[in-house]
Write a protein that binds this DNA or RNA. Sequence first.
DNA 1: GGATATACTTGTTCTGTACAACTATTGCTG
DNA 2: CAGCAATAGTTGTACAGAACAAGTATATCC
Lengths: 171, 171
Amino acid sequence: MSALLVRQAQRLCEVFTELVRRYQFRDRDQICFHGLSISQCYALQALAARHSLTTGELARHLCLKISTMTRVVDQLVRTELARRGEDARDRRICRVEITAQGRALVAEVRKALVQEYAGVLRTVPAESRDAVIEAMSCLLAAFKGRPSCRPAKAAAGRVRRRRNGIPVKRR
Amino acid sequence: MSALLVRQAQRLCEVFTELVRRYQFRDRDQICFHGLSISQCYALQALAARHSLTTGELARHLCLKISTMTRVVDQLVRTELARRGEDARDRRICRVEITAQGRALVAEVRKALVQEYAGVLRTVPAESRDAVIEAMSCLLAAFKGRPSCRPAKAAAGRVRRRRNGIPVKRR
DNA sequence: GGATATACTTGTTCTGTACAACTATTGCTG
DNA sequence: CAGCAATAGTTGTACAGAACAAGTATATCC
């Protein structure tokens, strides 16, 4: 690996880590302000962008286990921000859709976030703003090429059990 | 607010939100791999950068309540990554310092992250890399000018209680 | 010197997430 | 085609991170 690349990576590490750290806090506050958890918000945004998603697709998108996703969807359904529908082809599948109410909330959150960013951008010299945004999408593109979640944890001394074997005792 | 700024803010919102989302997942996996929680890691990094910090300073830095911070420090002390010391002037204060072991772990984590970033950077056209990093620090500077945590939550219908009044019943 | 403020700790609760087991459905194969 | 295996999701349970409330010790101010 070239020395230059290493130096650049070090610099990026410093800057980006700190940037994300700061951003996270504000983002969290902003979103929670609207009564959504981060996961709920991500899920809702994903649903707003597509017509419908299955529980599994959502889980993969958010890097959550399906069991967790079920519960996040439960919350959204309970608050009537999303609804569960059936899939015509495969009756095991659960198609999740956003409701009008959900769509409205996503719009509201987005508006607040955009305001937030406008505030940030205002303190960036006007002539650099486009460059900053451009750089960001460049980096995003780079990230997109890589897996976002670690591929399950097949790592450790984890025994693969037969599905239909004798039920395993809980510890 | 100018229409241009709004458009830019919208674009930034989209790109940056997605970038952070993806980054978070990887970051979480990466760090947990070293046996540190995110908060522990942030705390340790802050400690590595300075000589010592009080519990309160750490809490402010991480946007955590002091009570939570106490426990995060507990964890670091238990695993001998940090130690608690006294303050010569004010005996209420708890000065937290990183140990040699902690410093080594921070270095290890950092190394892994830098590798990660090098991988990302490699997929960015070589001639854009410096610009991307520059843009990032520009944005970071902009964020630094703003408070990172929402200023306590004086917002809601929250009653301010007298400190020395009759103890309030838990619900 | 006593009330009040500050810095932290401890007890408790809540929420988010994972893991294991279970149900229902679909698909594959002898 | 019967039955086993795979897939999609739900439910029971456990645990960690974080908050809130109350408690303790020290410092500061009138």
